[in-house]
Each structure stands twice: as C-alpha cells, then as structure tokens.
C-alpha cells in the first residue's frame, strides 16, 4: 500500500506549529515510515500538484485571498487538519476582531491601508470543513502524533472536553494559584498534558476555552485571589476572540 500523501500549508500565523512538526526529533523516522510528505514549505522546496490524502493547515484566514486559497486546498484534500491555535480557534490573530477593520488597516499600513483589503479573522473551520483539530500555540507533539495515528486508523480524534486542571492534577503539579500566579488552566481545553505547567509556566489558555466553561464562577475565584476581572477577560480574548463568529 502506498503511503498517504501529506502536505503542510500556512496562512496567517508564525509557522511555529510547523516548526514543532519539523522538530519532531526521534519520532521523525517512524513518522516518515508511514506518511509521504509531498509539500511542506518550511522544510522542503518540492511542490505537489495532485490530490492530498491529508493536508495540515496552520494559520487563520484573514483576507479574501486566503479564503480562496483555503477553499482550493480543501478541494484537493481528502482530509483537512487545522493545526495550532490560529487555525483551530483563530488564535492571537483574533484580537484584530476587537477593532474596526479600517482602524486596524490604518494602524498597520498607514494611509495606504486601502491597498491591503482585510476581513475579520476566521478560524479555518469558519471557512471550510475541518476534519481534525490539533489545538495549541504551539501544538503539543504527542497530541499531533495521536491525531496522525487516528487519521491513519480512520477514526475520529476527540479533543478532551475538560479543562487543563484535570491533566495538571494527574501530573501532581503545585497549583499556580498556590504560587500566587494567575493560570488559565481551569477554563482551557485539555489535551496538552499540562505541558506548560509541568515546565513551571502558567497556562495562557492557548487551546481555547473548554466546552461549557463556568466563566462567572471563574470570576468569583479570581475575586478570591484579588485578580481583576478585566485581566481575565483580556486573557480570554487573547485566544478566543474568533469564537464569537461560531455563534453567529
């Protein structure tokens, strides 16, 4: 059986998630045993003009060119995977949606902003159908590998429907709130095995809000720790601004 043809593409992003894949390390040999990478601008110059079995897409959709391009990629791909926060939830690019487009254009491009037409930032699934989601900023390699295996097994991958705290407690980390720090773990989707906290950092909430988060309850918690509510809302907006488009 021929190996599935896999490609990587990027839109508005820092390409950090693709860098994670490129830096996959020891696993690389095993991964390349089961897939054939046919296009991956960050690591190779070859291009592919046929169909893709799997396309990994990093980045969010921020202008009409991107809309057209992602639709074409979708047409050419049997399976499309959103890679990283920008692709899965809009990510930090979503912060643009807090402002008027004209204001944003002017801020970035000055008086010639009209030559650079822009649209509200969208996550990939807000433009085309997405089959698999790999959250994170950047993605967590073990989760990437799990998703890759699920794709090859032909089974869905379910992003955990509970917060990072669950994994963090299993790892028996000292709670960041005990250390006097604000951590987004209680309201952020798990799946990263509390990667940041294991390494002494707080959770920034990069994977997006968990389903059914108790935001009001979380505000109360922050009050107990004397953390301003506004501080939390800004932290949530940092990664979750595009979520509003899901509701429309």
């Amino acid at each position: 059986m021929s190996k599935p043809k896999v490609a990587f593409f990027d839109f508005a992003c820092c390409e950090g998630c693709q860098l994670q894949v490129a830096n996959i390390g020891e696993l690389l040999i095993d991964v390349l045993d089961i897939i054939q990478v046919v296009e991956f601008r960050e690591v190779m110059s070859e291009k592919w003009d046929g169909e893709f079995d799997v396309a990994f897409v990093e980045g969010s959709i921020t202008d009409e060119h991107a809309v057209k391009r992602i639709k074409k990629i979708r047409e050419r791909s049997k399976i499309l995977v959103a890679l990283g926060s920008c692709a899965t939830i809009g990510g930090v690019n979503g912060m643009k949606n807090s402002f008027q487009l004209e204001e944003v254009g002017r801020y970035v491009y000055g008086e010639f902003y009209k030559f650079f037409p822009t649209i509200h930032t969208k996550a990939v699934h807000q433009v085309v159908k997405v089959d698999y989601f790999i959250n994170g900023c950047p993605i967590y390699i073990p989760e990437f590998v799990t998703v890759l295996k699920s794709i090859l097994q032909g089974i869905p991958y379910y992003v955990p429907e509970y917060p990072v705290c669950v994994e963090c407690k299993l790892n028996e980390n000292v709670c960041m709130y005990d250390r006097g720090l604000t951590c987004m773990g209680p309201v952020t989707k798990a799946g990263c095995n509390s990667w940041c906290i294991n390494n002494g950092n707080i959770c920034y909430g990069c994977r997006g809000l968990t389903i059914n988060p108790n935001i009001e309850g979380f505000k109360e918690v922050l009050k107990n720790y004397k953390i301003p509510e506004d501080f939390l809302m800004k932290k949530i907006d940092m990664y979750n601004k595009c979520k509003e488009l899901d509701k429309q």
Binding site: Y162, C165, V166, K169, P186, P213, N214, G217, E220, V221
Partner: peptide, 13 residues
C-alpha cells in the same frame, strides 16, 4: 452550580 468550575480537582485528589 454557580461556584463549581468542573475542573475535577476534588476527585483527582
């Protein structure tokens, strides 16, 4: 209902 964040800490510990 208002208070709980459903973080699962209570059961893990």
């Amino acid at each position: 209902e208002q208070k709980c964040l459903s973080c699962g800490n209570c059961t893990a510990v």
